[in-house]
Structure formats: C-alpha cells, structure tokens
Design a protein around this nucleic acid. Structure first.
Lengths: 341, 341
DNA sequence: CTGAAAGCGCTTACAG
DNA sequence: CTGAAAGCGCTTACAG
C-alpha cells in the first residue's frame, strides 16, 4: 500500500503537498497536482484512516442505536432507516456503527461500547429508546438525534414522520370515497407517532362532521401495548359490536391492519365492499396482502438520510437550539379501499 | 477526557507503564498498577482508538456485506445474523461495518467504501453475494468468510447451516407421524442451501422407502426463482394435481410454507388433518401463523457468532487452508404437523 | 519492574 | 505555490 511518504518521494515533492491534494486544500500547481495524482494511482495508495483521524482529532463514526426488540420484530422499518443513513454516509467519510440496547437500560452497565470508548462523533436513536440513554447523551454533551420518536417534556433534535397529515389524508380518502362510519384501531399512545395518527384521524372526521364525539369514541379501539396483528383482530372484533357496523377502519399501522384483515376474512366480511381498511407505513407485505392494502407510505430511506444530515449539522454546530424535521408521507391507494390507482 | 500523558503524570509514572496496564501486558508492580487504575477512573480516561490503531497498524473493523435486495425483503434472516456478529464483537474491540451491494456488481465501481479505503481487517459475506466480490477479496488477499452460502467450484472459508440434516429430521418427523406421500416445494437451487434441503428430503424418503423415484419426482415442485409465498401457492397447487393428493409437504423455507398454507386455506384443505406442512428457518411469523408452523429452526445468532470467530481466526492466520463450519439446526414441532410439543 | 525514545502515518500552522 | 517541523496519542523494543 505505501504511505504518504512513498507518494511524496515518487512525485518528487514533500508530504505536505501530497496532503494538500489529498484533502483538496490550499493551492497546488496543476502539474504538481497531476504528478501526485499519478503517483497515488500507480502505487494504489490509500491514506490511513487512523492516522488521519488521529491528526484531526475526530472519529468519523456515527452510532445508530435501536431497541433490541425492534430487531427481533417482523417489520423492517428501522433496517430501512439504517439503510437510508448508510446511503447518505457513503458520500461522506463516516461509518455507521449499528448496535442495540435492551429495554431495561442502565447507562452504568449497558452503554454501547462505542459510547463507552468514545468512538463516535454523534448518535442516531431510532424509534423508541430508553429515556435514560437520551439523558445520558444530553449530560455527556454527545450530539444525537431522535428518529421517529420524541421524549415527552424534552426538546431534542429529531426527525419525525408527518403522522398527523398522513393520517388526515388517509381518512379524507375514506370520506371522499363515501365512508361515513370510520373506526380507529391502534396500539399504545406511548409512541407519540400513534397519538399523532389518532389526532389526524379524529380531526379529519371532525372537520368533515361525519361523526359526533360520541360516535368517534364508540368506533375507537386503543390497546395500551406495542402494536401487533393481535391488536387488529381484537380491535375490529370490538368495533363490530356496535349496532351499526363501521364501513371503514383506519389502523395505526400496517401490522395492525393485517390483523384486522385476517379477522374480517374469518368473519366473511368483504373488503372493501363492506368495510374499507387503511394502514400506515407501507410495509412490504402491504402490496401483497389480500386484498392489497391502502396505506400511508413512510419514506424510510429519506428518514434515515435526513437523520444523517441533521446529526452532522448538530455535530458541526452543537450549540444551536434543537430542531425537528418533518418528513412528508404519501397515500398509496390499493384494493382495500376499492380505488386502486 | 485527557490523554495517556495525563494519566502518567497523575499516577507519577511513565506513559509506557500506563500503556502496559492498559493492555494488560508485561509485569507491573501491583501498587503501581493500582495507582494507574485509580488515575484512569478519576480522569475518566478513554484511550484514543485512532492512536492505538495507528500504532498497532490494525483497523479493528470488520465489514458485513449483504445483498441490497435481502435488506428489502420481509425476512429478518440476515439482520439476525448481523446481530449475532455484533454480540460477538462486543467482547472484542472491533466494530462491524454493515453495508449492502447491488446484484449487478462491478468491483471497479461498486466496491463498498470500507474496502476501497482499506478500512477493515476482514469481511463477512452474508447469503448470496456477487461472485465477483468474493473473487476480488480473494485476489486482494483480504480475509473473508461466507455465511450461509458458497460458491460452486471454490473452496472458501464459510459458515453453513446443516441444511441436509435439518431437512432430514423434518421429513423423518413426517414419516414417523404416519405421512406417506410427502411433497417438496422450493425455489431456485442456485442457493446451495436449498439444494441441500432437497437432498435431505429425498434421501430421507429413499431411506425409509416410502416413495419410489417416480413418485418423488411427481411430488416435487421447484421453481427457479428466489423463494416467496407465491412459489408456495403455485407449488402446492401443482402437487394437488396428482391423482393421489400428498399428505404432507416439506417446504424449502417458511416463506414458501406461508404461501402453501394460504393456498390450502383457500381450497379448504385441513392442516394438518389432510396435509401436514413443514417449513425451514423458523421466522418470527412461524409461531403465529394459523396453524402454527412446524419448522427447522436455524440459530441465526449462532451463525453470526461463528462467522465472527472464524473470520478472526482467518485474519490471525491467513495462510491456513479454508474451512467450513457447520451449524446444527433443531426441529420445532407445532400445529401444522399435528404434534405440537 | 519501569522509563526514555523512536515510530505509526497523517495534518497543519508557519516560513519562505 | 511548496517544504521543514511539530504534533496528534498511542505502542513497543530496548535499556537499565
């Protein structure tokens, strides 16, 4: 491989000059630059990352932390977010170190090793994470951003999905296609994103005045657990106990919607003829379920990319006030609402 | 944070001695060691990774490469393998750099940046990967291991699932529970693991002599594409055209089995009463499908851990002949074969 | 058992 | 426009 010194010798210049062209700094005479570039190519030279990082006193690494349980789940949501960050990182010279933390988290013993050994310039926290971890990062003044999550009562840098408007557009779509008794099925509001989706649902209905407060309440099913198909099954079963069956259901996410669909099948209730179903997320399965699921698509790669950009800004400029970046969603119309595009 | 020099000063020793205790090398008088340890704790000192890596001329990083399409798929298989590696890495001082490559791959333009810049000591290739990539690594003498894949005609270091015995035990289980016309549904044999599963299936049937070669052929459905539920649906539909319906199906993986189950439901064929179904992998869904799926469990975390261990051995000892490590599977009996444990 | 010194391969003022 | 020199924070023979 060789070192910068070999290049300098071969090109007949000093290592300072080589370093300048390596980093595209200062002004180097074109011929000199060319000689150096040639030498680099001939010797297939790659600068040592460690040496460079040592000299510049940076790490060039970014941490990506996710709940362990999310990694065991079926949904690929956070893998996609990671991939979005990784894509963005490819254009920089940083690497992303991915690791998990457990639900029960104590900074004293459970700190990811890149934090313990100070090997990252900043951290992205994906989805729900232990609050102790965020507090630790805040105290240690380690730059970080939350992705698709926020912590009540705290103002941190974060990248969020536009849950409110996403839900709003989904419900509007239902109303416009003639639905008048629209139910909601969801998991714990501990995730603010789900709370926001509910708000989007509720306010859209209020805006169009198709149901009164009492009806909304009767057509709302929320269980205080992590979302799952099981919630969907229970939820729709519960809504069906109303005297008048709902003619549409907005589910807090696709996973839940899958449960709803399963239960409706079981009861031989036709989708979308009897009841339309809408999800949120656009998981891979949504396009392949029977019927194919209308859903609010969350651009996960964009989420990751924005998280990367924001994090780097925070690293550059740690003293700026925290900001929130909102990522827009798009409604994907499929069979489950009967108006596939 | 401070540097090693601050510790030396505080403890009243030289930096050499601090380095010795940091690395647990040589012999340091207990009192001296204690003084140093105290200083480290008081100053909350963390050695600089870059400086250490520069001095030792190592990277301390390992690359993990996976097909991009695998990342978009529903299955979490390789995420789990990655997690197994990450767990193992936690006990060492290395980081794992995860990235993807596209299906059409040209080393000249598509090389992961950690290879381009020489930032890893070795690489794990997870699942099917471009052969050009493996050849590149071989030529460049970069240590690598294949995980759950191998390249025909090449002898590389690899960690493999015991597909043959896994399939064998699954089919044996079917035979022992009285099944006599056992079908096979699978995707492309390009993946040697699927070929091996088929071999395990076939040889088990031959061993028990429950079907002759002709029958085996008639009850085998293989489509030369990547596995998917769609293959399962098509496959079982095809097998059902036999005069005598099969009374069991061994699917090349759970994803395929899900398609089989779906199609059987549609045709109102009872599982396991009419037809028993077995999968392979034990994806999260397998335990929640209706009926719950009997399957061959692949210990993904172990796979990752062994890959990490083997890779490190290869890095230490690059000249050893390539080895293959086989990871055992276990049969998980559930409703779909009627003998849940 | 411990210290002084050289070296790892870069970057970055500072001269000129 | 380019070079000499110091420095980043470690490790590692080598003395003693």
């Amino acid at each position: 491989m060789g070192t910068i010194r070999d290049i300098a010798k071969k090109a007949g210049v000093s290592i300072s000059t080589v370093s300048l062209v390596l980093n595209n700094k200062g002004y180097v005479k074109p011929e000199t630059r060319q000689k150096i570039i040639n030498a680099i190519q001939e010797l297939n030279y790659k600068p040592s990352r460690s040496a460079r990082k040592l000299a510049t006193r940076t790490n060039g690494n970014i941490g990506f932390i996710i709940w362990e349980s999310h990694f065991y789940e079926v949904e690929m949501f956070y893998s996609q977010v990671f991939l979005g960050m990784e894509y963005a990182a490819r254009r920089s010279d940083s690497y992303i170190l991915l690791t998990t933390v457990k639900e029960e988290f104590d900074p004293k013993t459970d700190l990811p090793r890149f934090l313990k050994y100070n090997d990252v310039d900043g951290v992205a926290l994906a989805g729900r994470v232990p609050h102790e971890l965020a507090l630790y990062l805040e105290n240690e003044r380690i730059p970080f951003v939350l992705v698709d999550y926020n912590i009540p009562g705290k103002k941190y840098n974060s990248v969020q999905i536009d849950n409110y408007n996403g839900a709003n557009s989904a419900v509007q779509h239902l109303i416009e296609s003639g639905r008048r008794r629209i139910g909601f099925v969801g998991g714990t509001f501990f995730h603010s994103s789900i709370k926001e989706r509910y708000r989007g649902f509720k306010e859209c209905i209020e805006h169009y005045q198709i149901m009164d407060a009492d009806q909304i309440a009767r057509y709302t099913f929320v269980e205080d657990t992590e979302t799952s198909p099981a919630i969907g099954e229970k939820g729709i079963s519960s809504l069906l106990k109303n005297d008048q069956k709902p003619d549409a259901v907005f589910c807090c996410n696709d996973t839940t919607a899958m449960g709803v669909i399963k239960e409706l099948h079981k009861r031989q209730i036709k989708i979308p003829d009897d009841i339309a179903v809408v999800g949120f997320d656009d998981i891979p399965n949504a396009a392949y379920s029977a019927p194919r699921l209308t859903t609010v698509k969350v651009p996960k790669l964009v989420l990751g990319k924005e998280a990367f950009n924001l994090l780097n800004e925070v690293i550059e400029n740690p003293l700026e006030p925290p900001q929130t970046r909102i990522i827009a969603t798009t409604l994907v119309k499929r069979e489950s609402t009967g108006v596939e595009e």
